[in-house]
Amino acid sequence: MSVKTNIPPATKTFDPARRSFLGSAVAAGIALAPGVFLYGIGTAKQVQARSLDEAASSSVRWGMLIDVNRCDSGCDECVTACNTENGLQGHGRPETDAQWIRKIELRDPASGRQNSLPVMCMHCEDAPCVDVCPTGASFKRPDGIVLVDKHTCIGCRYCISACPYKARSFVHEALHDQKTHAPRGKGTVESCTMCVHRIDDDRQPACVEACNSKGGGAMLFGDLNDPDSEISKRVATYATQQIRADLGLNPGVRYRGL
């Protein structure tokens, strides 16, 4: 039922000059706080600040690298940051409360060695949740981020069954005062968006930012398609793994030290 409308020129045009300020600031590498720098976004040369009117491009593939050795068992800054950023309120019902990122404690029964790591939506290249969604609400953006289009989601929860990483949650109650940058509603499915609203604004996902400023500095975010990015260089240098790599989904989140 789309109506082709010719939009008449606005009475006041928007000022694009505001945008360019942000772009140049990031390219220079701004300090967030004394001693704390924007971590891992790469060199000034490679940062192409995508303007607001530009579509996401498949020349970029956003990914994360998590160094399990730097992840502390007692720390959950990433989880707290995600909950705050996206407005995830607990309702005291752990079975049905949403969880976009969680800390998993691992223990090898043979050796007793223990590990801790955050697990969130893996943003797979060949995501099963995207395959099974009957309406196409679960989709992958050209730059690799897997999202749920809540406008089309009918809440069938098939994608939750299909996800091998248990990354998705269903909203079980009516929500109020959602964050303006993270719309979420009753009866739809949701999961980690890799803070797509921040990425589109040339910032880091909240979990990565929190880990690097308050946590163990275990998380790195960047463009896996850019060979000069910090993340690509590390993936090329060190041994990294994907969880359940055997499923052939090629997740965008990789781990080091698993």
């Binding site: 928007f14 607001l52 009117d53 996401a56 989709f139 999202l147 406008h151």
Partner: peptide
Amino acid sequence: TMRKGIRSKQ
């Protein structure tokens, strides 16, 4: 906005 990531202010 959702599918292409275009977030023009207007």
